[in-house]
Every structure is written in structure tokens, then in C-alpha cells.
Design a protein around this nucleic acid. Structure first.
Lengths: 142, 142
DNA sequence: CATTAAATTGATAACGGTTATCAATATAAA
DNA sequence: TTTATATTGATAACCGTTATCAATTTAATG
């Protein structure tokens, strides 16, 4: 069964790039997270495994992982990016608090069904979709 | 009929803030745009009306307009924000062809209904949503 | 194993959009 | 007017991210 590491290795080979201990470690640590991963938290955890890993290497590797489709980058209000695992993960949509940036993942089968109907109606073949519900979360309303 | 200027004025008064020529002008210019407005384009247009307007004033005014609900800020991958008019505009979603870039606007009342249900479920107050269906259009499939 | 070309790394400077600071000025109420 | 206070414009600071570069590592080849 294909896993993230093989997929990443294959991608690197195809591009004449190299499989390095740093890249392996970064992917490992990334996969130990769930949901949306913030740079700060990821970096902190990575320094535990390799205290001298440069921040640039981390950014570069996240870009590679994005390029090969294993992860996806999101931008929210605060100017920071978050990264999300995209492989062996069921599709879901996002509920985002525009005040504190907190996010909740959800999915709704009926919404997916109506999306397909709309695509048929306009002659589109649906490949992917992105739905973000922007609002204020319970905590921020207090 | 309530318009953007009155709404902004009222908001300012409520907060003990002041109605100034700069704020009026910025709102005027903003409203002359359609869809997502990029900072750069807005600033450029504003300098035509008042060449010495400070960039800080522009950012501050956009924040006020956001606070009073007239516009909404979005963040995308490139780190830049865009601003979108939120008043007297009918909401719609997008169907986007990833091959030719063609877009179709649509709306679906049932999807909107389920979105509200989801928000209630997680304790969010829905302000806005963004749904993009990405696919291949009829023409590009031929 | 040794050689070699090229990719990678870590340190750090640079970048760029946005925000904070502050003195001068404008606003609006009394 | 007067007066308190909000606003403005200039600019420095901020901060997440990216570019640069010399030293090092990788992996293919002899």
C-alpha cells in the first residue's frame, strides 16, 4: 500500500531531488500532527528531533510536500499559513472563526450531493471543491 | 433607503469616532470597485484623488469598514489581503473551470440551509461563506 | 572506494505587507 | 472661540516568509 514516504521519495526522484534525513524527519513529525498544523507548533516539535534544523529547510520542505500534493497550505486572517495533510484523509470543509482564526473541519453529504447536481446542470465535471464558512465562534462571542 | 455612507457615519458616531474627508473618499473609491479589491489597486486609485494620503490611513479605514460590516477581508496564499464589499450585494458561489478559467456564478438555497445547520451545530455565528467548485467545463472536455 | 557534479543545508540578510508610534493637525461639542 | 480628543501622514518597527551563499551531503560514475 502506497504511503506518504514512498510518494514523497518518488516525487523527489522524478524531479532529480534528493531524499535526505531532514526531509524524512520533517514528514514524520508533520504526520504526527492532526488537522491544521501551524508553523510555530511544527517548528517547535521539529527542534526536539533536530535542534539545529534551519527554519529555511522547514519552509522549503513544506513547499515540496505541497508541490507533490501531500499537504495543502491555507492562509488565514492573521497572515500565518497553516498546513494540512491531504493524503489518506477524507475530504472535508472548513468552518473558520474570522476573529480568532480557530477552525473546525466538517463534511455534509447532502451539500456534496447538491454540488454534483449544480455541476451537471452547468456541464461541469467536478474535480474538487473548497467551501469555507466564515463566522464568529462561541468563545469570541462572549 | 440606508446606504453605505450613512451606515458608516452612524457606526463612527456610535464609537465616538469622526467623519473625515479621507474616510469619505476611501469609501467612495472602494465602492467604485467590484468583486475582490486588492490593496495595491485600491491604493493606486486613491492616490489619484488625494496624492498625499498616507498608506496607514488607508489600512486604518479599511479596518473600520471591516469592523462595521461593510466590507470583508480575505487572506490568500501570497500573503496579501483582499477586501470585498458586503452590503447591498447578493451572495453567490462560483463554479470554476480549472482548464480555461471560465467561471459561472450560482446559488443554491438548500446548500445555504445546511450551512446554517452546521454552524449552529458548532456554535458559530455565520457571517459569510465561500464555496468554489473546481472542475472542467463542457467546452474543455471536447 | 574515490571522484565529481549537483543538490541540500543552515545561517542570516532581505523582502514586503501590515501595524505601531508620534508630533502636528483637524474635528466637534460646549 | 476654546478645548479635549480623534485623525492624519511619515516613517520605523514588526514578523512570517523567502533569497542568498558558502560549506556540506548526496548519489551516480569510473
Amino acid at each position: 500500500m502506497l504511503n506518504e514516504f514512498d510518494l514523497f521519495k518518488d516525487f523527489l526522484r522524478q524531479q532529480n531531488l534528493r531524499w535526505t534525513p531532514q526531509r524524512k524527519m520533517i514528514l514524520e513529525v508533520f504526520l504526527s500532527f492532526e488537522g491544521h498544523v501551524e508553523m510555530e507548533a511544527l517548528h517547535k516539535q521539529i527542534l526536539i528531533h533536530q535542534p539545529d534544523l534551519g527554519i529555511a529547510t522547514l519552509y522549503r520542505t513544506l513547499k515540496l510536500l505541497t508541490d507533490c500534493g501531500l499537504i495543502e497550505a491555507h492562509s488565514f486572517q492573521n497572515g500565518k499559513k497553516t498546513y494540512e495533510r491531504m493524503f489518506h484523509v477524507r475530504h472535508h470543509d472548513h468552518l473558520i472563526c474570522t476573529r480568532c482564526g480557530d477552525t473546525v473541519e466538517f463534511e455534509h453529504p447532502l451539500i456534496e450531493k447538491y454540488q454534483l447536481q449544480i455541476c451537471e446542470q452547468y456541464g461541469f465535471t467536478l474535480k474538487h471543491h473548497k467551501m469555507e464558512l466564515l463566522g464568529i465562534c462561541r468563545n469570541c462571542l462572549k
